[in-house]
Design a protein around this nucleic acid. Structure first.
Lengths: 351, 351
DNA sequence: TGGTTACATGGAAGCGCTTCCGAACGCAAG
DNA sequence: CTTGCGTTCGGAAGCGCTTCCATGTAACCA
């Protein structure tokens, strides 16, 4: 087996790397002025700024991040914190990572992945203290875990993706759930569904509670009595969705509103296994709009989370906070109801 | 609840951060000596080193990464490069990210996510030149794309996850595919399967070709003539697996070896839709062992990639390369055949 | 015209760390 | 008692950047 000696220690350097000094010299100004010109600080005449910028570009100048960081105390790197498993287990996590990565890139911020295992708050806090990152975006999936609370207490600039009413002091970007689920129930009703069931998420999570409340509210609005045996608990996983549905079917629901897509997929599997047809025997809806729903059959009616919008908002808020600007603590984003085959009965009223 | 548990070690924003100077002063040595002591460089007596280390710990000293980086030219952060979509679309990508993140943490390296969109080689190269990261792990998924080739040419310390025979000059960690697929075919034969089909991946990828070759080799070994109409092309996606299978079933295969799990899941859907039973009418096997297979029914026989091992190897190799050590260019890791319901016929010989 | 304000500019002081290099020391050999 | 060598140590020079501050210049009003 052939070896290669790692002479790579000099990694970055094939060319000698242009420094700010050079840019300044070529531009005929001081390093201080050049710095100001390039960073949009004022104290530089416009023509000088333009000249410096032009020189920088033509020289292919790229500021050394480490130096910048050391001098300014800012890294232009943000962290994304989420439970280690989530990424692998739920497509929601993957969608989130991707969207946050894109948003970060758009804002010219690096993205460091901080997968939280057992006692991550310490690791994250350390990472920040070490000067590696400026702040973090924390996935809602983690909300409720003790380490998240610790992290929030740790004085680290943070934006939460997901609602966390227990911590109104922390910036959060949340997805409207209550009215959205109401909307879904109304849609199902319009399809002629009469016994609409709901598999909710773990109720210590606010999103789960919102969805359940919305489900109830819709029944109230429709003037229907809700059969409580049609409301059961899931845990956002496919497997549980499947198991719970097996039992739930005994209650003869003609529609099942799942709290998320993974659950919905489990529901569909269980329904089909029971020999019932979707949507005619049982309509099914989800929540999230992850890639998983694109490949399921029949296509799943779901509330599409605007991942890009959410993450863009989270990242831009964080950037704003880091810049010292005021940012609303709570920002709400609305999902889109994507009606597909799993809830479209031939006899139903189209919305 | 209480994060600020006493020691100055914990609070991040409040206390002024312990510097090397302080550690040195308290230890009664120069900053130079302290640096050497803490970094394991020699030129320090053992007792001094011990003392300094002890002081550093008791003070809760954490070196400022930016300063370290600026002075040393090393960042202790590595990048993970993969196509932007892959993370969202294929659980393989998610598994990989998670495993790499864990491996990086184990090696005390930060992990920066570099999701490649259109023209990322430039972005990645820039990121490195800016001094943000030392090297990259590149997902095989991207192999073949032009930007990868550019990246590989860019003198960036790189380890590829996946085989890339076209670039024997680049470090790569690959999963053995050829013999593994042979193994699968033999297993299917032992279950009484006689018309074994294969849906391979895009043949510009080496893993796809390896698997196809292994498939053929197994038939040779079994002394069987392979009906070429049983070999069809997929693209590693679920949807295509489904579409291709619909047609493939006309050839009356009694087993389908899919090139990866996503394809296999598509296959299973198509087979069930055709009213055939798995495994008795058609046995199905996959390749990867992502989380997706855990929730599919019937459980899928698959070759489990040792994600942790692969990524550990990739990261430790990269770290080694960065340290200037020699590392084998090609390292091969073996998957495990996990036999499950999708290929276990009641009449078959158990392995 | 003088006196003020307003702004543009460059010198220089760091940011916290690594590392080169010469000083100091100890010790064996000559 | 010297010489020479190996080792341990501290001084100091940066790494490339930001930013404070003193200086210089032009523009303004009275």
């Amino acid at each position: 087996m052939d070896l290669v000696s790692g002479d790579a220690a000099t990694s970055s350097a094939n060319s000698p790397a242009v420094t700010l000094d050079e840019v300044a010299r070529v531009s005929g100004v001081s390093r201080a002025a050049a710095s100001r010109a390039l960073n949009g600080r004022d104290g530089v005449r416009d023509d000088v700024r333009l000249r410096v910028r032009h020189v920088a570009e033509s020289l292919g100048y790229r500021p050394n991040r480490a130096a910048k960081n050391l001098a300014s105390g800012r890294t232009s790197v943000i962290g994304l914190v989420m439970p280690s498993d989530e990424l692998r287990v739920d497509p929601y996590g993957a969608s989130l990572v991707q969207a946050v990565a894109n948003a970060a890139e758009r804002h010219d911020e690096g993205l460091m992945l901080l997968l939280a295992q057992n006692e991550p708050s310490r690791a994250v806090a350390d990472t920040i203290r070490d000067g590696l990152i400026d702040g973090v975006v924390v996935s809602a999936i983690a909300i409720g875990a003790r380490w998240v609370e610790e992290l929030l207490d740790a004085q680290v600039p943070t934006v939460l993706i997901g609602a966390h009413p227990g911590r109104p002091d922390v910036h959060q970007v949340e997805v409207e759930s209550h009215d959205s689920i109401m909307h879904v129930v109304h849609h199902l009703a319009s399809q002629g569904c009469e016994r609409i069931a709901h598999i909710h998420g773990p109720l210590h999570r606010d999103d789960a509670r919102q969805r359940l409340d919305g489900f109830r509210a819709a029944h109230l609005q429709l003037g229907r009595d809700l059969d409580e045996s049609l409301v059961v608990e899931g845990d956002y996983t496919r497997r549980t969705g499947q198991q719970v549905t097996a039992r739930l079917l005994e209650q003869r629901p003609d529609a099942i509103v799942a709290a998320n897509d993974e659950t919905a997929i489990g529901v569909m599997q269980a329904v089909e296994r029971a020999g019932l047809s979707i949507p005619d025997d049982v309509a099914v809806t989800g929540f999230d709009g992850t890639a998983a729903v694109e490949v399921i059959e029949p296509t799943l009616t779901t509330l599409m989370q605007p991942f890009d919008e959410i993450c863009e908002l989270a990242v831009s808020s964080l950037v704003s906070i880091l810049a010292g600007n005021a940012v609303p603590l709570r920002q709400v984003v609305h999902p889109t109801l994507a009606i597909a085959a799993s809830s479209s009965r031939t006899g139903g009223t189209s919305p």
